[in-house]
Amino acid sequence: MSAPTPGTHGSTGLDRNHQVALRVADGWASFDKEALFVERDGERVRVAFDNVTELSYRDTDYFLVVLSVVLVGFGLWFVPESPFSLLFSVAGLASLYRLYRHRGEVVVRVTDRPKPLTFHPTDGGAFYDALGAEMDGELLSDRTTFFGD
């Protein structure tokens, strides 16, 4: 039996207002009053709230962003000394790309899964806050955006 499709009402009880698309993989994430649903690349996962042991949100780590920018600058600064210093710049650029791609990650630890369920909603902070409120959690976050608004 496959998991229900988000946006359908009836016995599933899913509410389309909680459905969001994923950034990194093709798919969506949604939740209702009892469970979290994630579909990535054709694979659907249903996690009951009773089985969730930890819910966390990983935002951008600005220390690593600054460290990566310094690494790029270091590599470019020492190019006249040694062309191999460009490897530092390449490593810094790769680190910046990885940090940008994996920003806004929601991590769900489940009792019967050895690895946590991780996914990247388009608006990770809002989805995380709404999911925590639905699970009757405490105040999950009082985040403010880095550049106003």
Rank of each mutant, 00 (worst) to 15 (best):
E81C: 03
M1V: 06
Y128W: 03
D136G: 12
V70S: 10
P121D: 10
F74C: 11
D61W: 00
G73F: 06
P83R: 10
G124K: 03
E39T: 14
R46I: 02
K115T: 13
A48R: 10
S82T: 12
N51W: 00
G73D: 09
G132Y: 04
G27D: 10
D142E: 13
T111A: 15
R143N: 15
L96I: 09
E43I: 03
G27T: 12
L93D: 02
N51Y: 01
L139I: 05
P6I: 12
D32N: 15
Y100S: 12
L22V: 13
R109M: 01
D123N: 14
V47C: 05
P116V: 03
G137K: 08
P116N: 08
L22R: 11
S89H: 04
P114Y: 06
S89L: 04
Y128T: 06
T12R: 03
V108Y: 01
E43T: 11
L93K: 07
G13K: 12
K33M: 08
A94E: 06
P4M: 08
L140T: 15
G124M: 01
V24G: 07
P121S: 11
S56E: 08
P116C: 06
G27N: 10
H102A: 02
P121N: 12
S56G: 14
T111I: 08
R143V: 13
E54I: 00
A21T: 15
S141V: 07
V65P: 06
L117H: 12
F37W: 14
R58S: 14
V24C: 11
